[in-house]
Every structure is written in C-alpha cells, then in structure tokens.
Design a protein around this nucleic acid. Structure first.
Lengths: 226, 226
DNA sequence: TAAGAATGTAAAATGTTTTCAAAAACACCG
DNA sequence: CGGTGTTTTTGAAAACATTTTACATTCTTA
C-alpha cells in the first residue's frame, strides 16, 4: 500500500511517516502543493494525505485538480483547527474525509482504514469500467458496450447490473436486490426482479438460455460470475 | 475472544474486567466515547460493551458511528435506570442488546453468551469460509468445494449444512433442525431431516456409510464434528 | 441374541421456484 | 391529451427441489 503525504510541517512529516510505515505503508512525501500534485499525477497511490495549508498551492486546489484530472485515489485532508472545513466536504472538492489538527494517531489509523475499506467497495469495484466477456460497462457514463456496439439499458437495468457487478461472486437474494436497487421494502411481486434479470441476460449474455455471467442460484437468488 | 469495554465509572470497570477476564476474555477498556470509538475502529473485537452515559461522546453516538462505518461487532449497551432505552433499540442505532444498571453478573454473562452465539451465526461464519477434511464451504457465495471441485447443494441442503457447522460439536435434535432450518410453520414428517442428512453425507463425506463429520447420535439427533 | 425402536435410503409422488412472453399499468414529454 | 418507452403484473410451462413411502439396516436393551 502506497501513501502520498503532502505536508510542509517537518515534525508532522516525521511522526506520520513513522506511524504509517509501522502500519505497513510505503510513504512518499511532498512538502508543497505543486510537487504533491505532480507526484500524484505521475505515480499511483492507494491513499493521499493532504494538508490544507501548503506552500505554492494549497491542499484544496490540489484536491480539486486531482479530481478534475480523474485521479480517484481516496484523499484524506488535514486541517488546522479553525479552518473552515465545509470547503473541503461541503463544496465537494472531492476529498473523502478530513482530520482536524491536532489529532490522535489512532484516529488517523481509523480513518485511513475506513477510507481504504470504502475505496475497495467503490473505486475498484464500481468506478471506472468493468469488463466481462465481450461486454464493457462504463459506470461513469452509464454505458454498456457489447462487441463494441452500444447496448441500451434502462436506468433500472443499469442499476441492477451495477449492483450485481459490485457484489460479484456473492449470492444475492431477491429481497436484497429489491431493497438495494429498487429501494422498496418488498412490495412489488418478486417476479419483477426475475423479469429484469431476464432482460439483462437477453441483452448481455452470449446465450441467454444458459447464462454465463448472471447466474441463478435456485432457492437463494442470483449471482454474478466474472 | 476480545472485548472492548467503554465505561467511565472506575468501580464498574474493575468489576467487569475481572469478571470478563475470569471468563476467558481479553479485555481492553476505554473511558470515554471518543477513545472507545477509535479503538473500535482501529482494532477488531468480538464484542463491545458500551455505556450510554460517557464523557466526550455518548454511547449512542459511538454506536451509530460504528454502524455507519460498517463495524458489525455485536454491541451490548449499558444504561442507567431511567434512561430511555427505546433510543438504543427502538431507534435502531444498531445495538444488539442492552442491560440496565445495576445488573447481576450472571445476567451479564447470559447476555454476552447469547450475543456471541448469535454473532457466530451471522458474522464469523456466515461471512467467510469453513473447512473440514477436503471440503471448503463458502457462505457468501453459497458454494461448497470438495477436493477443489464444486459440489451442487440445494438451498435447503446448504442451510442445513450451515446450521450444522454453526452448531458444530453440539448434539442437534431433529426438532431443532426443523425449527431452525425449515422454519417455524414447517411440519414435514420427521424422516425428512434424515433424508437430507443422508444427501449431505453422500455429497460431502469421504465414506457416507461411515460418516466422519455429520454423525448420528442415536436417540438424540445429529452432531457435526470438525 | 431377539424384539423393538431408531435410522438409512431409493424411488415415487408432490411441491416450489424460475423463466419468459405478453398484457397491463405507469411515467414522462411535448 | 396521446405517444413513447419503461416497469410491473400475470400466468403457465419447465426446471428443479422436497416430502413421503416403504423397506432395509443398525442400534439398544433386556
């Protein structure tokens, strides 16, 4: 796991680096916004810790620039007490979490852990693009290509597909799909799910009769197999 | 088994720690909500005991935050007489049980035992994987591999197997299986259980004739031996 | 060891779940 | 308001699962 730490305060760099390395991270540091930004753009990291107050370019700008350039690495911002934090989260510059200085190392660890856990769920799984067989799903554009031809999916079909993909490998009960994709508490007849699954299969499977990806697990529900 | 005890009252900490340690738990304590929360986030525990009235951050908030961060450790809340408990359970902050002070140690033990048993059902086992002999059971995928080859089990067979595994070591009566695996209203003839057990044995045992894992306890029921 | 009770299991009978096409209901837009 | 595309409901056949039955076997106890 690689962390980019962008921070100008010498003491904090040392403390944090120690802590992070002891937790098994490989740490790269930058001491101003510009170099931080260019590291983040030229290498890949699993996490970026970004101070708000930085020489040359402040953390908020770095954060915005990164997001604008589609860098989706989780970002944890560090703010001094008093700096208004709504700028970070409220204005949606794209940071994932923040910590107000001074902070406990434990708190830091906890937030890092949470961030990374979340990022496993969202980034690797859902953001970007996912391919199976001759099908490519682009989650950002909400587009699906099959053999490079665009397939039209309704919003619901797309959400269903996304949910299945995000949970690929697991058995997913119809109830769960109804909850998570439909948002219902269980009202529509359960056949609804089946019908939509059938449509997805029609549109995406090589041979809808013998589905390769969207499989049924009799008595349980469905399972996406990549 | 690790317990996190979040409690500010010195005397109670000592009493509880003693008791819990004598029951074989490893106890970690925190005396305010914030440190409790960060411990709970940065380490893993099998159980969290959380006082409602705490300095810095109250137990209800800690509980909500934990659940929001997908910490699924069972939580037992301690409330003073008079504190409205519907906040804990009624508002579904995610606690699993509560105890009103003052309480008997026996009562505490009983509730802990119940919680842990329940949690074995849901967490440790339902998530993850269980192995015996050449068989590996993956509860998330609802899949069973034997010698790395996939074995097809019906939903009922799978649930039965899961129940047996979750209660491994115990003698389980046929009635219990009917209740727990088949469901309350199910009233099939008692031989049904035997048939399904036989099928599981056929599919999973090395030598179904002399079952090694799913054993008969004549006159009582069955027992899973790992 | 024999009698009775409990258990094992193959196969028939019964029951349930899933698929899928078609129809009905709905929602949105101009 | 009607047209268009989407979603839900329905129903019936097909796929699959469970229960029962009936007899064999094993176990317990005296």
């Amino acid at each position: 796991m690689r962390v980019l730490l962008v921070e100008d305060e010498r003491g904090l760099i040392l403390t944090l680096t120690d802590r992070l390395e002891s937790e098994g991270f490989e740490v790269k540091t930058a001491s101003d916004g510009e170099s931080g930004l260019s590291f983040a753009l030229s290498e890949t990291f699993d996490l970026i810790i970004l101070d708000v107050m930085l020489p040359k370019k402040n953390g908020l700008d770095v954060c915005r620039d990164l997001r604008q350039k589609n860098v989706e690495t989780p970002i944890l911002m560090l703010t001094a007490k008093g700096e208004t934090i709504d700028k970070v989260l409220g204005l949606k510059l794209g940071a994932d979490d923040y910590l107000t200085k001074p902070f406990e190392m434990l708190e830091l660890s906890a937030r890092i852990e949470a961030l990374l856990r979340r990022s496993v769920n969202t980034h690797q799984n859902a953001v970007g693009t996912f391919k199976f067989g001759s099908v490519a799903v682009d989650f950002r554009r909400a587009e699906v290509l099959k053999e490079n031809r665009q397939i039209e999916l309704s919003a619901l079909e797309f959400k269903l597909l996304q949910y299945l993909i995000e949970h690929r490998g697991e058995v997913i009960k119809r109830d769960e799909l109804l909850d998570e994709v439909w948002g219902y508490d269980a009202m529509p007849s359960t056949r609804t799910v089946d019908v939509h699954v059938a449509w997805l299969r029609q549109k995406l499977e090589e041979n809808p009769k013998y589905p390769q990806y969207i499989q049924t697990v009799h008595g349980f529900g469905y399972k996406f197999n990549s």
